[in-house]
Computed example of a mutant assay.
Amino acid sequence: MSDTKTPVTHDLKNLFEKIKEVRIAMFTTFDENRVLHSRPMATVKPEADGSLLFLTDKDSAKVYEVNKDSQVNLNYASPDDSVYASVSGRANAYRDEAKIAELWSEHMRAWFPKGKEDPNIMILKVTIDQAEYWDSPSGLLSRAYGYARAVVTGERSTSDDVNEHAQVKV
């Protein structure tokens, strides 16, 4: 086990900056048997209050599952960019036609053919309790620097040279 401390922040801005290009999260809930159940979901946008919003169908298992147990986890990964994040929080499902209209984009029609007026659209709001992210520059120079540092010093890369790693506690 490493003796280095992971930096802790209370600011969600860096987390949102890391995941904004990833867009798809693996959204994990507990099913009716308390077994973890994950599926890909597109993050619509982060809110000013620090929550994350998703659109889903009112009859989906996600809505049923978050109504039974609101604890969820979101995992974001962009291997090409070496960006990873895990977000834990509480989800709730609700319907707000004005907010749905604000969040709507035409590509969502693939899931909601009736458009933003579809009465089956629900908003899943995830209120973040805590998160953790990792961002390792994936460029050749960054990797070469980390390698050279390890060879010369005998020490592995740390978060202050080529890697960025932080916990976010809200």
Rank of each mutant, 00 (worst) to 15 (best):
M1W: 08
S2E: 14
D3G: 12
T4D: 14
T4N: 12
K5P: 07
P7W: 09
H10P: 08
L12P: 02
K13S: 07
K13V: 05
N14H: 15
N14E: 08
L15P: 04
F16W: 03
K18S: 08
E21K: 09
E21P: 05
E21H: 04
I24Y: 01
F27W: 00
F27E: 00
T28S: 13
T28L: 14
F30S: 05
F30V: 06
N33C: 09
R34Q: 10
L36E: 13
L36C: 09
R39P: 03
M41V: 04
A42G: 07
T43K: 04
T43P: 06
V44W: 04
K45E: 15
P46G: 02
D49H: 04
L52I: 14
L52R: 05
F54A: 01
S60A: 09
S60Y: 08
K62M: 10
V63D: 07
Y64I: 10
E65T: 07
N67T: 11
N67Y: 12
N67L: 09
K68G: 12
N73C: 14
L74E: 00
N75Q: 13
A77P: 04
A77N: 09
A77I: 09
D80L: 06
D80S: 12
D80K: 11
D81E: 13
V83Q: 04
A85E: 00
S86H: 03
S86A: 13
S88Q: 12
A91S: 02
A91R: 02
R95F: 02
R95Q: 15
E97L: 12
K99D: 02
E102N: 04
E102I: 03
W104G: 03
E106N: 14
E106K: 14
H107Y: 11
M108L: 15
M108K: 07
R109K: 15
W111S: 02
F112I: 08
P113A: 03
K116W: 10
M122S: 06
I123W: 04
L124R: 03
V126M: 00
T127S: 11
D129I: 05
Q130V: 08
W134D: 11
P137E: 12
S138G: 12
S138K: 11
L140N: 10
L141I: 12
L141D: 02
S142K: 00
S142Y: 00
A144R: 08
Y145G: 03
Y145E: 05
G146N: 10
Y147A: 08
A148Y: 07
A148I: 06
R149E: 06
R149P: 05
R149H: 14
T153D: 08
S159M: 15
D160A: 13
N163T: 15
E164S: 14
E164L: 11
E164Y: 11
V168W: 00
V170C: 09
V170F: 14
